[in-house]
Nucleic acid binder design. Sequence first.
DNA 1: ACAAAAGTGTTAATCTTACACCCATGT
DNA 2: ACATGGGTGTAAGATTAACACTTTTGT
Lengths: 230, 230
Amino acid sequence: MELKQNIKVAVDAIVFGYTDNKLQVLLIKQKFGELKNQWALVGGFVKDNETLNEAVNRELQEETGIKVNYLEQLYTFGDNITRDPRFRVISVAYVALVNSSKMVLKADSDAADARWFSINELPNVAFDHKEILKKAYNRLQSKLTYQPIGFDLIPKEFLFSELENLYCTILAKEIDRRNFRKKILSFGIVEETEKFGNKTKGRPAKLYRFNRLKYNQLVKEGFLFDINFA
Amino acid sequence: MELKQNIKVAVDAIVFGYTDNKLQVLLIKQKFGELKNQWALVGGFVKDNETLNEAVNRELQEETGIKVNYLEQLYTFGDNITRDPRFRVISVAYVALVNSSKMVLKADSDAADARWFSINELPNVAFDHKEILKKAYNRLQSKLTYQPIGFDLIPKEFLFSELENLYCTILAKEIDRRNFRKKILSFGIVEETEKFGNKTKGRPAKLYRFNRLKYNQLVKEGFLFDINFA
DNA sequence: ACAAAAGTGTTAATCTTACACCCATGT
DNA sequence: ACATGGGTGTAAGATTAACACTTTTGT
C-alpha cells in the first residue's frame, strides 16, 4: 500500500501546579518561528523512534526541567485541520501534575521563558491551546473526585487545610471542613505524621501523608475513592 | 523549522452492538496487505484534508455501511512503536455504539468480511487491537454508569427488561429489578409508550422510550445521570 | 391450571448533610 | 486577653439495599 500522508504528530502537556491556594498552569513563551513570543503549552513534535510518552517527558525536560508526579493522556486534537498555521498537525495532549510549591523553573532552555499562570488569569495562548486548557481543567475537576490525584499537587506531607483548600479551589465550591476530614480519614489512606506544619498563626496543625501503598492495596480489594459534596 | 517526521496517523473504531443479551463487537477481515485475512477493528489512515472525526465516519461507512448512534474518542495508541509491522503508525481510537438488532452489514466493501463477535468470544485480532478492545470495554463499562449511553445500543422503543439486561450484562453484575426500574424512572427521562413489545411468553410488556430532550434539559439544570448498584 | 415474564412497596441500614463550640498557639 | 486557624460530634434527612407476591398473557 502506497501511503502519502502529510500530517505531523505533536504532543502537548498541560502542567498543573497548586501554589498559594491557586491552581496554576505552566506556559512557555515560544522562542522560535512565526509564533515567537506567544505563550503556549509545553510541547513539540514526536520523534520517529520515541513513544508518545517519551516525547512528552522529553519536552517537559527540555523546556522546563520539572519533575511531574502524574501524567495522563487527555485527548487528541485533530479535528481542526488548520490549528497550526504552518501545516497539518495533530496533537496528543497530556495532563501533568506537579508539586509546584518549591519548584524551580529552568531559566535557560528551548523556551524563551516559562511561567506559572493562575488558571483564572491566563494570557492569550497560541494555536488552539485555549480549548485544550479548558478540556484539561474539566478533566482535572472530574478526576479529582474519583481518583486521589490531589495529592500529586501538594507536598508529600501536607496540612489537612491545604488538601481541603485544594478541593474547594479546584472544584470551585465550598466544602464543609468537618465532613471533608471525616470522609478522607474514613478511607484510611491518609495518615497523621508526628510533625507539625510551620504556620505562623493559630493552633499548630499536624502534617498528614498520603499512603499510596495502602491505597493501591485497597483498590485491589475493590475500594473506590470518591469525594463528592453537595 | 525543518521537520522530518515519518509517522502515519490512523483511526480505529471499536463498534459495540447489543444483540441477544450479548455485547458484541464489530470486526472486519483484512482484504489486503500482510495482514490479509486477520480480523481487525474498523479503521484506516487519515487523509491530509479530513478531520479525525471525518476519517472515522468515512471508514465506518466504507467498511461496514452502518449508522452509529454514538461516537467518542477513546485514546491514542502510540507508545508501541512497532504496533504496525509496516511502519510507525499511531492510532486514534474511537468507541462507537450502534443498535445492532436490525442492522444489515454490507457484504461487499473495502473489507473482505465484517462480522459481529460476542465480547467474550473474540478471535485473535491484528496489531494491538486486543489491547484497544480491552480499553474500549472498560470505557464502556464506566461510562454506562454516568452517561445515558445504554439507550444507544437498543431500539428507540424498548422493554424495561432489555435495558435492565443490558446493564447487568455489560457491567457483569446482578441488579435488583425493582430498584433498577425505580431509579431509572425517578430520573424522569424514560417514558412509557402506549405500545407493547411482542414477547411470545409471559405477561405483555410495555415499550418505553428515552426522552433525550428532557435529559439534555435536566443536564443544563445540573442533573447527573448515575446508575450504580452494589 | 400452569408456565413465564411483568409489574409493584416497604423497611432497615447506610450515607450525607447541616451545623457550632472548644483548643493550642503567637502576639 | 485576643486573634487565628485547628480540631471535633451529633442528629435529621436522604438514599440505597434487600426482599416476595400478584398480574397478565399464551399454551
